[in-house]
């Protein structure tokens, strides 16, 4: 096995282009479990831990560009106000030790349907910036990034550089079902983001389909039916939660049944919309 240790982004891209089968390792919280248990013996590990560009975030024309290697603990501490949905999801990841190492870039790289970053990135309409030495940068909308179970749109010679997302313009919530508060892989999860200036609501569903996904019909329904100057109409909420549950295509597995997941998605859709709407009205009144 090789251990590749680039110290700049250019070197990292060159290493990946020359050895596309090398496995990137950032926080290692997915990669090392697989190596310890001999699930994978990649021919090389490509350590991204010394590529400074990946550990920074910046604002470009008002949009946040967050390096793939920024660990969850910093998402929570430094970006909690700008990206509240993602920060809430980050707070539910593993344990403090896992949040100190684990990253959104690694979550994207693993592309697990249960990854907690995905629903809030989908709801916020984030873009994933990926790059290869030979073909340059591609900006992939989050909803096109997840293409199959643990499969992303990333090509073998590409690395994830950052994700881009606007600061929240309205309330955002993330909700996750599991057996305890810490160390839980989501049984299923749901994220919501209100975009009041566009009169639109974004959604993201986790662990209830082969990939993380939005609930497009539920989003279109709200865009058409929500009265942004009034309290929530219970009939609108009911239809929204039905449409959200219909967007899921869950399976039965050790963590829960498909029926349970569909039910839980409808409950989380109702709750998160209600919480977000109450915040929205309160902020408007203030």
């Amino acid at each position: 096995m090789d251990f590749l240790r680039p110290t700049t982004w250019e070197e990292a891209l060159a290493a990946k282009a020359d050895q596309p089968e090398a496995m990137p390792i950032q926080g290692g919280t997915d990669v090392m479990v697989e190596i310890n248990f001999d699930v994978h013996r990649p021919p090389a590990l490509l350590d991204l831990g010394r590529v400074p560009e990946l550990f920074t975030w910046e604002q470009v024309d008002g949009v946040y560009r967050v390096g793939a290697g920024v660990p969850y603990v910093r998402i929570i501490e430094e970006l909690g106000e700008a990206l509240p949905g993602l920060a809430q999801a980050a707070r539910t990841v593993g344990s403090p030790q896992i949040r100190n190492r684990g990253t959104v870039g690694g979550n994207l790289g693993a592309a697990s349907p249960a990854g907690d970053s995905h629903p809030p990135l989908l709801a916020a309409g984030a873009m994933i910036e990926v790059e290869s030495r030979d073909r340059g940068v591609r900006m992939i909308p989050a909803h096109e990034f997840y293409v199959g179970v643990k499969k992303s749109a990333l090509e073998p010679d590409e690395l994830i550089r950052a994700f881009w997302t606007k600061p929240a313009s309205g309330p955002q919530y993330f909700s996750k079902v599991g057996t305890r508060n810490a160390m839980v892989i989501a049984v299923c999860s749901f994220a919501i983001a209100l975009h009041p200036e566009e009169r639109r609501v974004g959604t993201g569903i986790g662990s209830a389909a082969p990939t993380p996904r939005r609930a497009p019909a539920a989003e279109e329904f709200l865009a058409a039916e929500l009265d942004w100057d009034a309290p929530l109409d219970p009939a609108v909420v009911r239809r929204f939660e039905e449409l959200a549950a219909q967007a899921a295509s869950p399976i039965d597995d050790v963590r829960g049944t498909a029926d349970y997941r569909r039910h839980a998605i409808s409950v989380m859709a109702r709750r998160t919309l209600t919480w977000a709407w109450n915040d929205y009205l309160r902020r408007r009144a203030a």
């Binding site: 390792i25 090392m32 590990l45 030790q97 100190n100 190492r101």
Partner: peptide, 25 residues
């Protein structure tokens, strides 16, 4: 596999699971 925390050490001042850090890192 990061579940038990019994391997917790400081790495550059931050507590981490040593079982999930590659030695080369």
């Amino acid at each position: 596999q990061g579940e038990c925390g019994s391997c917790t050490v400081y790495l550059d001042g931050t507590p981490v699971c040593a079982c999930l850090v590659a030695a080369g890192q």
